[in-house]
Design a protein around this nucleic acid. Structure first.
Lengths: 338, 338
DNA sequence: CATTGGCACTTAACTCGGTCGAGTGCCAAA
DNA sequence: TTTGGCACTCGACCGAGTTAAGTGCCAATG
């Protein structure tokens, strides 16, 4: 069990280091915070903190900086919820007013998050597999070509073209459409393969080839492709403090361009706000960064994640407050439906 | 009129500088290229080139580097079309095989372009105003809520929700849908306001409120919102050669996040491949960069632009070849329709 | 008269030694 | 247990000197 005073010193170190980006020594620490103890005492405590692996010195004659583990302890045991500033509050309370479709919502959200936290923001589209079919539309474009539009209850709209082997008629299309909707509407997307298993059998052999094509495309939409989708904003914020990443921009930018990496980063969708610090996540390109995420979506069934990513040396309290406030607001907005 | 030999020297300077990123002096120039003249002569010519503003020295005791104007002359008068390498050719000839919808096409294109040129790639979605309506679909979600889906001949699909003041019926929706399609199908989107001008008048007063809501939303989709849309890939490439931008990442990344800036950058859609070098474009954040763009879309009616953006010190021949090859291929693909 | 080799000059980049200062660990005293 | 004192460490900074690349100019040359 770590003594309270030692934690207090850790907090002071984290605060100062986050603010100044410079290793913090015992003297300035005593001066800046009124801890009521002398630099010498602080030095003793620091030695212990270092022994526990919570802080380290870049070189012998420098001050201390928190380690990843130090930040972890800070986040878990010390940091308090920092109330957002009035303008931030206000921005978050209104940024979705007048949003026009899901794209719009996601775009506004990612922008806002980047702006408020001054970090790189990531927002995942509502997961397809957790959404349900609201409607399937089939439009004949030509006699041999249909467009399938899939609309989910989370507002996502996916479309796909399908080429037919045989000509079809408006009547056939209408029939197919109503049958499909009858069966699929309300079904979760990951149930669709099941639902459609013996669907083709209901049709005349002559129609089957076409119906099969359509069904296959729908299955593809439901399962295979781009199941998840992520957008990023605020990469410019990475460059704000050149000192932080200096050397290694390239790998970070690279990671941010890989959907797969980002999805992995966001992790499983779950309640609450989570923090991953430095080495705690396994992408070697990102071990100088921390990630703060939160699930969002209707109460009890979070459909996706959003979050921010920044240097391990970040304002965790502020970021966590912002992320969870935004997640809460988006959830409410989606719940109200649109 | 500039002597041929002097141009030859300019070419050599540009080539060397692009390759090494170091100011090039008379001696290495004579050594590396077999120009058949001595360093002293080269020095004389260089002095003239500098007088003409095509090259400059970072400081007195350094070699020369091309100015923006120098690159301009290089591009206009010297550079030859550099044939793409076999693997590049192959990549470009197949990257759209199996593309599944417009999003897919645009995404694959921007990725490929970034990969081939090793620069930041930008692709604009086919301009809405230059597209024509293929189909307008109206789906009743609830009794008071419709989803309008607008599909263009360029493959773009936009959707929007509309809230109704009065309850409606399936029959009314069907009627509205067919009327709308009758009038709008085939119309260019920027003509839609005109086309729909007196559309509401055909309806019973009781229906008018609802019809007006729907029409308004369609007008919004056609004109107001996100008329143009752009996506970017390969920002990581900016960081590849740290020396180039060293100081000024921030402003460039910032510019790349602004749709408006990017659209302005791509400029008017037109035939052929265009190059803008450094100060030739007016965004102060980007005056260390050059942009290579090309229109794409069906022959004779280019519907959008694509291009790359990189340091002024770039391989212009290669970039231009790649950009125009990709544009050609995408155009052909879109023309084949899908 | 264009070209060339030679030469004096300029200047950024690099190296090296010395100094400075922030910070530490340890120890003895309170 | 805390504290002041002290010797020690080590990166950051500074200034001088050296090096190397490159230039401009000029006189000689074919």
């Amino acid at each position: 069990m770590i003594a309270d005073r030692r934690l207090e010193i850790l907090r002071a170190i984290v605060d100062d280091y986050v603010a100044t980006n410079e290793p913090v020594g015992s003297k300035v620490l005593a001066a800046r915070h009124s801890l009521g103890i002398s630099p010498a005492t602080i030095r003793n405590e620091m030695a212990l903190l270092e022994e526990e692996g919570l802080i380290s010195q870049p070189h012998t004659s420098a001050g201390r900086i928190p380690t990843d583990l130090g930040y972890r302890v800070f986040v878990d045991r010390i940091s308090t919820v920092k109330p957002l500033s009035a303008p931030e509050r206000r921005a978050i309370d209104h940024f979705l007013e007048g949003a026009v479709d899901l794209d719009d919502v996601v775009n506004r959200t990612v922008r806002l998050l980047a702006q408020v936290t001054k970090q790189v923001a990531i927002v995942q589209y509502p997961s397809l597999s957790k959404s349900a079919v609201r409607h399937i539309e089939i439009l004949p474009l030509t006699l041999l070509r249909l467009m399938i539009v899939l609309i989910t209850d989370t507002g996502r709209v996916e479309q796909r073209i399908v080429e037919l082997a045989n000509q079809t008629t408006e009547a056939n299309v209408a029939k197919l459409r109503s049958q499909l909707n009858l069966i699929c509407a309300g079904e979760k997307l990951n149930q669709i393969p099941n639902t459609l298993k013996s669907f083709t059998e209901k049709f005349e052999p002559t129609e089957r080839t076409n119906v099969t094509s359509v069904v296959n495309v729908i299955l593809e939409m439901a399962i295979e492709r781009s199941e998840e989708k992520v957008i990023v904003s605020g990469t410019a914020n990475l460059a704000r403090i050149p000192s932080d990443f200096a050397t290694s921009f390239h790998p970070i930018l690279e990671a941010l361009e890989e959907q797969v990496v980002l999805l992995h980063l966001l992790g499983e969708t779950a309640e609450g706000t989570k923090v991953k610090i430095g080495h705690e996540q396994d992408n070697t390109n990102l071990q100088l960064t921390s990630i703060v995420t939160s699930g969002y979506g209707p109460e009890g069934e979070r459909v996706a994640n959003l979050g921010i990513i920044g240097p391990t040396r970040m304002d965790y309290s502020g970021s966590m407050s912002a992320v969870s406030a935004v997640a809460r607001y988006v959830s409410r907005f989606l719940e109200a439906g649109f």
